[in-house]
């Protein structure tokens, strides 16, 4: 089986760029540690409160160190539980200063949800029985919408939250 000369050039060029491309992705993944969210920790979906992070009083934003925050969230149809404020009201916006490192930990007691903070790299599937975690640095200020991007039922499109990054 003979390859035509031009086809050889074309394929060498194509496979070459493929190799470069994979090398870049591999470099970013294994040297820089940029993996997609792949947290491996299970939880009982019918009893998420049993986990320290998802106790009602631990939900929402907490500063764990200077400039470092953790946000614990329970995603359920059709709502993100971001905890309660001092007055006992539902929190609907997470506010963090610019440049802070934020770890998002999300789980669900019911069906599969999505968790995407539009305009950032935070985009994870949230599945019953698993905890999804992603740490990111909020570099830009502004308002970012948290959307549920996996179909979870008739109220799916009403499931959202907000992250506000201020100076």
């Amino acid at each position: 089986m003979n390859l035509h000369k031009y086809e050889k050039i074309w394929l060498i060029f194509g496979i070459g760029s493929l190799a470069v491309f994979l090398a870049v992705i591999g470099f970013a993944a294994f040297w820089k540690g940029t993996h997609p969210q792949s947290h491996i920790e299970t939880i009982d979906p019918q009893n998420v409160e049993a986990h320290e992070a998802f106790k009602p009083e631990n939900l929402g934003l907490r500063e764990v160190a200077d400039g470092k925050y953790t946000v614990n969230i329970i995603a359920s149809a059709f709502n993100y539980d971001l905890g309660k404020d001092e007055n006992g009201n539902r929190v609907d916006t997470i506010r963090v200063p610019r440049g802070s490192t934020v770890l998002f930990q999300v789980t669900t007691p019911d069906v599969v949800h999505g968790f995407q903070i539009a305009g950032t790299n935070v985009n994870m599937m949230v599945e019953p029985g698993h905890i999804s975690r992603y740490e990111t640095v909020m570099k830009n200020n502004g308002e970012f919408t948290i959307v549920c991007n996996e179909y979870c039922g008739i109220g799916h499109h009403l499931m959202f939250g907000k992250v506000e990054v201020y100076d």
Binding site: T42, D44, P128, G129, G153
Partner: peptide, 15 residues
């Protein structure tokens, strides 16, 4: 091996 407790069926979210 790492499977969590399973999920029961959900009917109401799809109406």
């Amino acid at each position: 091996q790492h499977s969590p407790p399973g999920s029961p069926p959900f009917d109401w979210p799809i109406g």
